[in-house]
Design a protein around this nucleic acid. Structure first.
Lengths: 127, 127
DNA sequence: TTGCTTGCAAAGGGTTTGCATAGGA
DNA sequence: TCCTATGCAAACCCTTTGCAAGCAA
């Protein structure tokens, strides 16, 4: 078990209190309101550590890393215009095989899936 | 239609002659053997342009951009150890709905899927 | 000539790293 | 005390951009 330093606690707490899958620098800005002297390096180091410990998920959505404290099984939609990310319900992992054929020879350890689209707000703004 | 400069022709030709989904800098090294004075900037600019023209596909696999001249419908597996990428057969796009539930409110424009695993060569090396 | 394309180099964004200091067990 | 964690700054990788020169229509 990893030691719960104030930085880690606040980081985890901040992440648990949101559903917008923030990037490291966005999280950095939020955490800084509670720990003004925290550094970006510490944020990155601890996000890595927390994800290795399985306390959060590290997502690679649209080029930038994003983080999620919701560990339940779900997928994500990303708005290609504003970049926001929402949760989406998702069938059980087994059902993936119905749609995608597993590759030969590889030992499969996982898969990555995301929807890409335009979020309701952006649709409204574009008429 | 885009003008076919020597740089673009060689870039496209080089990409069509391989199936390993090279990154921009790998492609740069290969193209440089035929056009020693080409610059990385030109490689990036033309890969963008060729993908906008629909002549190649730009893939975002594992943090780095990779490029593919195979325009047929297929998926990819990425080896989490060596980073290599292979093609995988794939069911029709419609079947995606069987595995993933489309999000509410979003206008969906596409989806991204990739398998992650360990390639045969890396399996062998690790015993 | 005019406009697109290039090479070069610098800048950019996101992330990682080295190091001396600070802090907890 | 010892070892880990931190802040800070520099380095890093990949990609984009500005600009003057080059080339094609």
């Amino acid at each position: 078990m990893v030691r719960m330093t104030p930085q880690r606690r606040v980081l985890l707490d901040e992440l648990k209190g949101t559903h917008d899958h923030p990037s490291a620098d966005l999280l950095y800005e939020r955490v800084r309101k509670r720990l003004p002297r925290i550094s970006l390096g510490t944020v990155y180091r601890n996000l890595d550590l927390l994800s290795e410990e399985g306390l959060i998920h590290k997502l690679q959505l649209g080029g930038q890393m994003r983080f999620d404290a919701d560990l339940t099984h779900h997928c994500h939609v990303r708005c290609e215009q504003c970049g926001c990310v929402d949760d989406v319900d998702c069938q059980a992992p087994e059902h993936v095989e119905q749609a995608f054929i597993a590759p030969n020879g590889y030992r499969i350890t996982g898969h990555r899936f995301e929807w890409v689209g335009v979020c309701p707000q952006c649709q409204e703004q574009n008429g």
